[in-house]
Design a protein around this nucleic acid. Structure first.
Lengths: 148, 148
DNA sequence: AGCAATTAGATTGTGCACAATTTAAATGGA
DNA sequence: TCCATTTAAATTGTGCACAATCTAATTGCT
């Protein structure tokens, strides 16, 4: 019989990750409110800042989000005049997302965020790298499972 | 000038945590669908399994959730006949949440979940402890900031 | 060419999260 | 005792997440 121990909140491994994720998004709010964007919108812009003009699918692959989440989010970014949404002429099913001048410009205002977030978190570089590598391990492990 | 490097998705510390949190909730779904509950509902039940009869505030303190999230969630648990919601007689503002027989019984069906989840994640015990301790550090650090 | 199967994205519906406001009960002076 | 202040939940409104379904365009097969 599995003991009660394993069902206590304090002994959970997953709850801290879930709580940490919400805490991080909360800390981002401080910076992102000034830019009038949300954290998921910031992630989309970050992907576009690195490589402009991507399809909804390509954004979804990188952010692990589906069209049910991205379509309305991208429409809100379009309303804020930060991105353009255009049907591809080569394949009418595909929607290409590109940055507007304002969307590209926002990158400069966002530049200071990663460093300030790191300071806010109060952890060491080593801990950060450890966290990243464990997260990647789980995500990669389970991505493999889904295909096989 | 902060270099572009820091604004690339691959170099983010926060995105992996956010993606990992969603992946974990996704993996839980496999088990929780059978119990017809969601992950946040499971967390509430876990708190009640450890200590029955708590106020909405007490649940919120432990799970770091407010009444805007908990009130509708608890109403759904009530509809499933897993918890009771009763106004305290000593203080009419307070709502006390307690397990029904079915809610208490569900603990037995949930008992196997933590072990199976651990197996699914594909990480070592050491990595799990590391992840927990870093999450706790950030959460505690920022809880302190909010008060000071 | 014609049509089934596939693919990209949009839509619908449910359930969190969370800010901001509201309501009602309790408390703490003056 | 009276009333401003505080407190506990509930409510309202916005924005994700995500399953399931739908629509329309494309591809592949014969």
């Amino acid at each position: 019989m599995v003991p009660d121990h394993y069902l206590k909140l304090d002994n959970q491994f997953c709850f801290p990750v879930y709580a940490l994720s919400r805490e991080i998004i909360q800390l981002y709010r401080k910076f992102l409110d000034e830019l009038d964007i949300t954290y998921p919108q910031y992630l989309v812009l970050m992907v576009l800042w690195q490589h402009d003009k991507q399809t909804v699918n390509q954004l979804g692959d990188k952010l692990l989000l589906d069209s049910g989440t991205l379509t309305p989010l991208l429409k809100r970014l379009e309303q804020k005049a930060l991105v353009n949404r255009n049907r591809s002429k080569a394949d009418e099913r595909v929607v290409e997302i590109s940055l507007t001048a304002a969307g590209a410009q926002l990158k400069e205002n966002a530049r200071r965020i990663p460093k300030e977030m790191f300071d806010l978190l109060g952890i060491t570089l080593e801990e950060m790298e450890m966290l990243k590598s464990i997260a990647h391990k789980v995500l990669k492990y389970n991505a493999r499972e889904q295909k096989g």
